[in-house]
Amino acid sequence: DRMTSQEAACFPDIISGPQQTQKVFLFIRNRTLQLWLDNPKIQLTFEATLQQLEAPYNSDTVLVHRVHSYLERHGLINF
């Protein structure tokens, strides 16, 4: 699994950072998509996403918020 070119453009700090940071991003992105796909008729809020993310992935709330906002803005969740 890899970041898309659009994700890389929107998250230059992640793509240029350590490999582990990219893996954390990918986990948060994929898990958020999975959470929404589990029940697409219900809006997936940032707060609900954060509550359902497993530790330690829920510890970087800023990154979780950025990923959630990106997915929502680009019509990948909550459409």
Results as ranks from 00 to 15, higher is better:
Asp1Ala: 06
Asp1Trp: 05
Arg2Lys: 14
Arg2Met: 14
Arg2Pro: 05
Met3Ile: 15
Thr4His: 04
Ser5Asp: 14
Ser5Met: 15
Gln6Ser: 11
Gln6Glu: 12
Glu7Tyr: 00
Glu7Lys: 02
Glu7Met: 02
Ala8Met: 11
Ala8Gly: 14
Ala9Arg: 11
Cys10Asn: 14
Cys10His: 09
Cys10Pro: 00
Cys10Trp: 10
Cys10Met: 06
Phe11Arg: 00
Phe11Ala: 02
Pro12Asn: 09
Pro12Lys: 07
Pro12Leu: 06
Asp13Arg: 03
Asp13Phe: 01
Asp13Asn: 04
Ile14Glu: 01
Ile15Glu: 11
Ile15Lys: 08
Ser16Gly: 11
Ser16His: 10
Gly17Arg: 05
Gly17Gln: 06
Pro18Tyr: 06
Gln19Thr: 11
Gln19Pro: 12
Gln19Cys: 09
Gln19Tyr: 11
Gln20Trp: 13
Gln20Thr: 09
Thr21Arg: 13
Thr21Asn: 15
Thr21Ser: 14
Thr21Trp: 10
Gln22Ala: 09
Gln22Pro: 03
Gln22His: 10
Gln22Glu: 07
Gln22Lys: 10
Lys23Ile: 08
Lys23Pro: 04
Lys23Ser: 14
Val24Thr: 14
Val24Phe: 14
Phe25Ser: 02
Phe25Asp: 00
Phe25Met: 05
Leu26Met: 13
Leu26Asn: 09
Leu26Thr: 12
Leu26Phe: 13
Leu26Arg: 08
Phe27Leu: 10
Phe27Met: 09
Phe27Pro: 00
Phe27Ile: 06
Ile28Val: 12
Ile28Leu: 11
Ile28Trp: 00
Arg29Gly: 02
Arg29His: 00
Arg29Thr: 01
Asn30Ala: 06
Asn30Trp: 03
Arg31Ile: 13
Arg31Gln: 11
Arg31Phe: 11
Arg31Ala: 11
Arg31Leu: 08
Thr32His: 02
Thr32Ala: 10
Leu33Trp: 05
Leu33Arg: 13
Leu33Asn: 03
Gln34Pro: 02
Gln34Ser: 10
Gln34His: 15
Leu35Thr: 05
Leu35Gln: 05
Trp36Pro: 00
Asp38Arg: 13
Asp38Leu: 09
Asp38Tyr: 08
Asp38Gln: 12
Asp38Val: 09
Asn39Ser: 09
Asn39Pro: 02
Asn39Gln: 09
Lys41Asn: 12
Lys41Leu: 09
Lys41Cys: 14
Ile42Phe: 14
Ile42Met: 13
Ile42His: 10
Gln43Cys: 07
Gln43Gly: 08
Thr45Met: 03
Thr45Ile: 02
Phe46Gln: 08
Phe46Ile: 14
Phe46Lys: 06
Glu47Met: 07
Glu47Gly: 08
Ala48Arg: 14
Ala48Thr: 12
Thr49Tyr: 01
Thr49Val: 15
Thr49Ile: 06
Leu50Arg: 06
Leu50Cys: 08
Leu50Ser: 04
Leu50Thr: 04
Leu50Val: 11
Leu50Met: 10
Gln51Ala: 13
Gln52Trp: 07
Gln52Gly: 14
Leu53Asn: 02
Leu53Ile: 07
Leu53Glu: 00
Glu54Ile: 10
Ala55Lys: 06
Ala55His: 12
Ala55Asp: 15
Pro56His: 03
Pro56Lys: 07
Tyr57Leu: 07
Tyr57Cys: 06
Ser59Gln: 14
Asp60Gly: 04
Thr61Ser: 15
Thr61Glu: 10
Thr61Ile: 05
Val62Met: 09
Val62Ser: 15
Val62Gly: 14
Leu63Cys: 01
Val64Trp: 01
His65Asn: 10
His65Lys: 15
Arg66Thr: 03
Arg66Tyr: 01
Arg66Gly: 04
Arg66Lys: 11
Arg66His: 05
Val67Gln: 00
Val67Tyr: 01
His68Leu: 04
Ser69Met: 11
Ser69Ile: 06
Ser69Arg: 13
Tyr70Thr: 02
Tyr70Lys: 02
Leu71Thr: 01
Leu71Pro: 02
Glu72Gly: 06
Glu72Pro: 00
His74Ser: 12
Gly75Asn: 13
Gly75Trp: 06
Leu76His: 04
Leu76Phe: 10
Leu76Asp: 04
Ile77Arg: 00
Ile77Gln: 00
Ile77Lys: 01
Asn78Thr: 00
Asn78Trp: 00
Asn78Cys: 02
Phe79Asn: 07
Phe79Val: 11
